[in-house]
Amino acid sequence: MKHNENHIVGYGTYIFVWLTLVALTALTVTVANFDLGGFSIVIALGIASIKALLVMLIFMHLKFDDRVFRIFVFVAFLTLAIFIVLTFSDYSFIR
């Protein structure tokens, strides 16, 4: 656990990630102009998830921290996903 604590992420990595994030933003705005039906929400949320993942892994240091943090974050997101999926077991199948 200790040795990871001393990892310092360089400016270059951050700027690279930031550029990627900006590019993904541009992509999602561009894609939104096309009518893709039900897919548009999937794509929009997919891109947003990639962006969020990048922020968490690099900006929030999850990639370099102890494993226990990644497990925690996974559990938290899983819980939220389960809440949504189970609620939709009602709404998706209602007549």
Partner: peptide, 11 residues
Amino acid sequence: IFLFPLFYLIH
């Protein structure tokens, strides 16, 4: 990051 597409970009 999630609010932006959900409110501004849905069509």
